[in-house]
Design a protein around this nucleic acid. Structure first.
Lengths: 190, 190
DNA sequence: TAGAGAGGAATGAATGTTCATTCCGCGTAG
DNA sequence: CTACGCGGAATGAACATTCATTCCTCTCTA
């Protein structure tokens, strides 16, 4: 996001700081400072720190879902659907630095309100229904969908974190290697 | 850990709370209350909150490494070594509730001191050398070891979290299914 | 066209609250 | 009786939040 106004500037700085240090370890003055804005200005746009956190969380969960849905079609083979899911995750990560890591780090956080939690459940449901279909077709491994999600989601986010801190460079070769690895972890092997 | 004295009681309560809510969102009075101890008593045993956090972190990272090493032998085949690594992770998880999740959640936290960070690097090195050997033998997929670690570590911890919150029951069938899934994600496929 | 004035936006010092940490009086074991 | 371990109220620092004031920009007037 290129901050074109103070509100966006606050959101943008808060996202980076929350992802880096966590919600609780980030202070309002830090955010104000990083956004080049007075502390009071933040309260013109957000009722309080929690609202700011929830706004960010919901924004990005919804954006993530849209990214997935935009690249998704139930017509295709499960393998192709998986490819699109994976590409959507990569795309979202590229277009929204810090966002996926912020979501992951705070998906169980205490400051989240009901709406944020529901949005997150919906996101998981996208993945769940994919795996359910795959298992019905005998293409996906017979494990609880929760477990399959955890494997792909956990592995991907841990990788994304390495990229974030610069320990890994996401060139095409690495990406396709990772996609294959994750696919092998969830597919049915005969 | 069965708290037999006040110090252990504090450690035990702090571990559970840090894992649940995170270091920053956990207050000293919360810990004192949960440990059935006065707030001041905590300071008889730990210089301050950071020291308490680092003590826990180092304790469990070291215990985790010991658990792994106790079940490890370089003589065996890579597949067998992987099995032992996996069982060690499960074992450690069973014997030390909350501990692995605490480690994961805080492995990049700002309160960690140099020593804690070094211990964590050592832990990762255990995994790294396993994967390096495996790649040399052509048994493990050609991906950077960092990436392989992230996949196994990320997936396992996300799963362990599901178990922790009760969404998944770790029966033997599930465990061996997960082990196979993770093995398929890192092994070389011909 | 210049200048005054209104109204919204922005600021950061001031406020009240919450927390880590300290301190002191109490009880208990030796 | 004494000394050590303990609890929890007391303290001060750091924080989220508020608000009186300033600053900007647009508009209306002479």
């Amino acid at each position: 996001m290129n901050p074109e106004n103070k509100r966006d500037s606050v959101l943008c700085s808060a996202l980076a700081l929350f992802a880096e240090r966590g919600f609780d370890a980030t202070t309002i003055p830090m955010i104000a400072n990083s956004a080049n804005v007075g502390a009071g200005t933040i309260y013109r746009y957000f009722e309080n720190k929690e609202v700011l956190g929830n706004t960010l969380f919901q924004n990005y969960v919804v954006t993530f879902m849209k990214t997935i849905e935009a690249h998704y079609s139930e017509e295709q083979s499960i393998r192709q659907q998986f490819h699109h899911l994976f590409r959507a995750m990569v795309l979202f990560t590229n277009e929204n630095e810090h966002a996926l890591y912020f979501i992951k780090k705070h998906s169980g956080a205490h400051f989240l309100n009901e709406e944020s939690r529901e949005d997150f459940v919906q996101l998981l449901n996208l993945f769940r229904s994919f795996f359910e279909t795959g298992k019905e077709q005998g293409v996906i491994r017979e494990l609880p969908s929760e477990a399959l999600i955890a494997i792909v989601y956990g592995a991907f986010l841990e990788l994304q974190n390495l990229v974030r801190v610069g320990e890994l460079v996401p060139d095409p070769e690495l990406l396709s290697g990772v996609e294959e690895s994750l696919w092998d972890s969830v597919r049915h092997h005969s």
